[in-house]
Structure formats: structure tokens, C-alpha cells
Design a protein around this nucleic acid. Structure first.
Ligand SMILES: [Zn+2]
Ligand SMILES: [Zn+2]
Ligand SMILES: [Zn+2]
Ligand SMILES: [Zn+2]
Lengths: 138, 138
DNA sequence: TGCCGCGATGTTATGCTATAACGTATTGGA
DNA sequence: TCCAATACGTTATAGCATAACATCGCGGCA
């Protein structure tokens, strides 16, 4: 059965390597983190990673977390069909939970409509502590 | 009458300078933008700006825009009493519109409650084109 | 086949963003 | 007065991102 680590066959070598690094990570990775993981595969310069990331993000296979300057693999193969995506980022363990919410999206659409603002992209990132880390701290 | 450019009297010199720079700008400023504007006032190092920004953001007098690595003065003197704040950023003219939405906040609270996630901070930034820029492009 | 155009790649250099580490100065209360 | 907390100044360094340019490889197409 298909799962979220399946990868489109039409990725270039660098894109495949970068997506692989993200898929095998338990948390977000910076471009330089990714570069370090891929030196053994022949990557040498930040641009090789950034260019691959650009394409992956463009296709919805990866997401950029603005508040971390880092990237994650998309957790849902079909998420790019949806609009707004939100991320809950645990400050304790670094885990990221990706989710979509139609109500929030609609609400933003209402606001934009009233203001005459044309939305092109939305960043939504929640920082805090996940249930596991909260329990561990108690 | 009070307006949004009023400034608390208990700011330090550097904090006052930085907040002044933000208040007199029509758009977001990076820390280095601010530094350049304040060299005439004696500021010399990025850290002087970052330290002031930290305090201003902590007090809700300024906000950091994660997707721009830049800062704006708070548009509403009392916004820090509210919870979640959202920003609509125009890619055309750079203007930023700050707003709050209780419905979105509640919706996020529901999600967090269901997951056992403790929210500490939320980033919400909409990128797109404002009404003025849309009209100009038409 | 041979040419061309386009997108991906490789490489070097550079610019922008942010913080570490250290010492001094100022402030405000015990 | 003394102390502790906070702000300040300065240098150095770490971390994130892109400019610019040359090259390569693969498709369409004459
Ligand atoms: Zn996704
Ligand atoms: Zn956690
Ligand atoms: Zn505000
Ligand atoms: Zn605009």
C-alpha cells in the first residue's frame, strides 16, 4: 500500500536525495542540515539543496517552516490539493504535526474578501509543547 | 487623543529609537534596516537592535514577521491583550495589515485541546496582493 | 544526424540574519 | 553603601540564502 514515504518517479537525483533526507528525519531539517546528510552522496554546496527544496516545496512534497528556517517532508501525499496548511511544532521534541482546517481557511477567505486582498500563500505555525513532552515534564 | 504611535515612557533609549524607526516606516524593517536608520543616533552593532527588538516584541509593542525576517510596530496599542494575531502582507507594496480573529483562535484552541498540545505562540501570515495593488495592476 | 533550447547541475563568492562571549555602565532596592 | 539585576557596547562568529557564471544532458526538430 502507498504511504507518505512514496516518492514520485520523476524527481531529479538531487531532488530525490533531499526528499529522502527529509523523509528519514524525525523532525525539521535546515538546508545545511540536509547538506551535511548528503555530502556522502556527492552534494557539496548549499545551492544544490536550496534548488531541490524550491522544486519540492513548489510541488507540495515538502514544506518550509518559516519560524524555524527549516523544512519538512509533506506528511500527506495529497495535502497539496488542499489550501491552507497549519503546523504545530513542539519546542520540546521538535516534532511537527501537519494539519488542515477548512473553517480557518474559510474565515481567512472572508477576511480577504472583505478587504479586497488576494491571498497567494498562508503561513500558519503553532509553537508549543506536544502531549508527550507535557506528560514527561509533569 | 491617543494613537498607535504613542510610546510608553519607560522604554530605554535604544528601545525608544528602534520603536521610533518602526513607527515611522511604512512597511516592515529588518534588524539591519533599522540599524542603518539609527547609525546617526549612535547605534553601531546589530545586537543593540536585536536586544531592543526582543524587549519590544516581548511587550507586544512590535511584532516579528517570520516569513520576512522583519519587524513591524504593533498597529494597535492594546493588541497584546488579545491572543492570536494575524498579518496580511502585500507582496506589491509591502504594507502589512494586522488583525485578530476570535474564531480562528478558538478553532486552533479546539485542535490543540483535542491533541493535548499546549500552545505558546502562534504565527499566522498571509501573503498576497492588497486591494490597492490589485487595482493598479488591472 | 546535427542543431538548438531549456532546465538541472556544479562551483565560487557574497550577502543577509542572528547570536556567543565578554566587559562596562546604570539603575534601583536592601 | 552595597549588591543584584538590567541595559549597554564591542568584537567575533555562526547560520541562512542567493548572485553569477559555466557546464551538462535531454528533449524536440530541421
Ligand atoms: Zn503537506
Ligand atoms: Zn514534544
Ligand atoms: Zn499588535
Ligand atoms: Zn499592496
Amino acid at each position: 500500500m502507498a504511504h507518505s514515504h512514496d516518492v514520485p518517479g520523476d524527481l531529479t537525483r538531487n531532488q530525490g536525495l533531499v526528499l529522502g533526507a527529509l523523509n528519514h528525519s524525525t523532525g525539521p531539517l535546515s538546508a545545511y542540515d540536509i547538506l551535511d546528510k548528503l555530502r556522502a552522496d556527492g552534494l557539496r554546496a548549499p545551492l544544490q539543496v536550496y534548488r531541490a527544496l524550491d522544486k519540492l516545496v513548489e510541488r507540495g512534497l515538502a514544506h518550509r517552516l518559516e519560524s524555524l528556517n527549516a523544512f519538512v517532508a509533506c506528511a500527506d501525499e495529497h495535502c497539496h490539493r488542499k489550501g491552507l496548511i497549519a503546523f504545530a511544532i513542539c519546542e520540546g521534541c521538535g516534532k511537527v504535526d501537519e494539519f488542515a482546517d477548512a473553517v480557518i481557511e474559510e474565515r481567512l477567505g472572508d477576511w480577504a474578501g472583505a478587504k479586497g486582498f488576494k491571498v497567494e500563500r498562508t503561513t500558519m505555525e503553532i509553537r508549543g509543547k506536544c502531549a508527550v513532552c507535557l506528560k514527561a515534564a509533569a
